[in-house]
Design a protein around this nucleic acid. Structure first.
Lengths: 162, 162
DNA sequence: TAAGATTGAGCCTTCAATCTTC
DNA sequence: GAAGATTGAAGGCTCAATCTTA
């Protein structure tokens, strides 16, 4: 394995799909999901459900439209995730009025978040393990820059507040 | 917007999910898919279908099990993608025997690939636009390193050959 | 009318089970 | 039995349409 960013796979053979950023991002996303699932299996939670719980921990009482923007996921997916979390007893929906939700973590969700505080950094470490300290910082900085500056190109842009 | 990798979003407020690599990768993947779809809409093709076509262009005549490894996607997804591509008339399956497929690009697929040769680099450019030349190189190098070194952690690892 | 929320269809990915053919 | 391929269910994401309530 050389250290030029190409593995033995692409040393001898030119195989284009591997070189497209979109393709590599898809594969890294697959890897991240696999790692999250293997570490969180016993707690029966997915990466998106965890993101939603973190958002509600940060902003208790918000409605789904606000949650959509915090976790940067579309309305449909958010609707689905909230339903699942309510079914699991992790989220409580005290309706603000007949049309607007008001979402809170349940007691068991707060306990779960305590556990995940330990596990989440482990997951991050496994993902970034192939990189050394300075490479990790560089990657995270560039990744965040791409996400934030391309935010509006996403179908579900991130936003704070209203 | 500062240039330290954090946007205005995270300057004032500490919002943890944004800092997890897995979360940012999920969002970048969303963005990549959105960009691909907007550029390829008129050709009725998805990013994964395009990857499969590229693999078959590179290795005509392979079966699905080989295609699985080239595009680093699981058997189920590959089965689905191949069925769709055959239905669209982009892929021809000359069965090797009663159980093993042998996949080839159709004539219209080869024409489509000519067009995509122009479009694919444009898609890459839009994705990486927020970064300057040296940042792009650094990001791609680190991204490739993460994907290749974490390859075996994926449920659908990449592999060449048998 | 606009905002909040939901549903349906198709695509991609994970889990698992199954079925056929080598 | 092992290998190639398919199917089903559930999660996540795209498109779009719909429905109710503020």
């Amino acid at each position: 394995m050389t250290d030029d960013g190409h593995s033995e796979y692409s040393q001898d053979v030119k195989f284009e799909p591997l070189e497209h950023p979109g393709h590599l991002v898809r594969r890294l996303h697959q890897i991240c999901v696999s790692i999250f699932l293997s570490k969180s299996k016993e707690f029966d939670i997915t990466h998106l459900q965890y993101a939603a719980l973190q958002a509600l921990e940060y902003s208790p009482g918000i409605d789904q439209a606000r949650l959509v923007k915090l976790i940067a996921t579309d309305r449909q997916t958010t609707s689905y995730v909230v339903r699942k979390l309510v079914e699991k007893g992790l989220v409580v929906n005290k309706m603000k009025n007949k049309k607007t939700s008001s979402l809170y973590l349940s007691g068991s969700a707060r306990a779960l978040m305590k556990i995940m505080e330990e596990i989440a950094p482990e997951i991050d470490d496994v993902i970034l393990k192939p990189l050394n300290k300075s490479e990790r910082a560089a990657f995270m900085q560039l990744l965040a820059k791409l996400v934030h500056k391309n935010n509006e190109l996403s179908r579900a842009p991130f936003a704070l507040g209203q």
